[in-house]
């Protein structure tokens, strides 16, 4: 054990990657609205999605090329998702759902680049997205069904005496949706990226022992990083997918509150 070398603590700060750095300070009447590295990566994500979809579809070929078929596949993927989870009348909201999916997916994938900032690893970002979905879906529910939307909170076959309690619990359950939606996305990405950095730190600790055994031992965390990176790519996609599927399900609840 080379405890004396590692005495200065862990060689890598696994949280450092999530630090917000102000790039252009902005101040609107005491509200700090600075343009940060997080904003920068959101803007990059937005431009990348737009550029990707527009340029890839520029040819509008009957037989799609490589890029065009990627865009067509993602279009069909989201369209099927909306149709199956929100029903055919949910198709009206396809543009929003597609934008949401592409934004989260691209933000997550950009986060996999070294030195890039993972936008979705901050709970305020995912919570803002989840609240947008939550408020939007609630408004849609009331606009579509009027007060009939409140039927969502009254389960079938509840005995009369227990009804107020059950309705209260249902309302709390409904209010917990944006929390679980945002926490899931944020926690998955945060945990994954921290794990990667910690295993990277293990390599440095191993190698800094200087012994042959230590350098040979560094292969173990290295292999772990390779495996985890693959897993992180899966998580990046899966979490974008889960976020949008749940949005579709909430939308379906808003459109058909009866069941």
């Amino acid at each position: 054990m080379a405890a004396d070398q590692a005495q200065g603590g862990f060689p890598v700060d696994p949280i450092h990657q999530f630090q917000i750095q102000t790039l252009i300070p902005l101040d609107f009447g005491g509200i700090d609205a600075s343009f940060t590295n997080s904003s920068l990566w959101m803007v990059i994500t937005m431009f990348a999605v737009t550029a990707f979809t527009i340029f890839a579809m520029r040819g509008r070929a009957m037989v799609p090329g490589r890029m065009q078929s990627i865009v067509e596949m993602s279009y069909e993927f989201v369209a099927n998702m909306v149709r199956e989870n929100a029903g055919s009348d949910g198709q009206k909201f396809f543009p929003f759902i597609f934008t949401l999916f592409m934004f989260v997916l691209f933000a997550n994938l950009f986060g996999m680049f070294p030195y890039a900032f993972t936008v979705m690893s901050h709970i305020i970002v995912t919570f803002a997205l989840a609240m947008t979905v939550f408020i939007g879906v609630t408004l849609v529910g009331f606009a579509k069904n009027g007060l009939g939307f409140l039927k969502l909170f009254v389960p079938d076959g509840a005995p009369g005496a227990l009804l107020p309690l059950v309705v209260l619990i249902e309302i709390i359950s409904y209010l917990s949706r944006p929390i679980s939606l945002s926490v899931r996305l944020f926690a998955n990405l945060l945990a994954g990226h921290i794990t990667l950095k910690i295993f990277a730190g293990f390599i440095i600790t191993f190698v800094s022992t200087g012994s042959v055994l230590g350098i040979a031992g560094a292969i173990l965390p290295m292999g772990m990083i390779v495996a985890l990176t693959a897993l992180e790519f899966l998580v990046a996609f899966l979490q974008a997918y889960v976020f949008t599927v749940l949005t579709c399900m909430y939308l379906s609840d808003a459109l058909h509150p009866g069941h």
Partner: peptide
């Protein structure tokens, strides 16, 4: 298969914690 055990655990725990936080 992709639906890993850890994924299921995370899913359930977030649902659980979210309910308590909301209430």
């Amino acid at each position: 298969k992709r639906n890993t055990d850890m994924g299921v655990g995370l899913r359930l725990s977030t649902e659980f914690i979210a309910g308590i936080i909301a209430g």
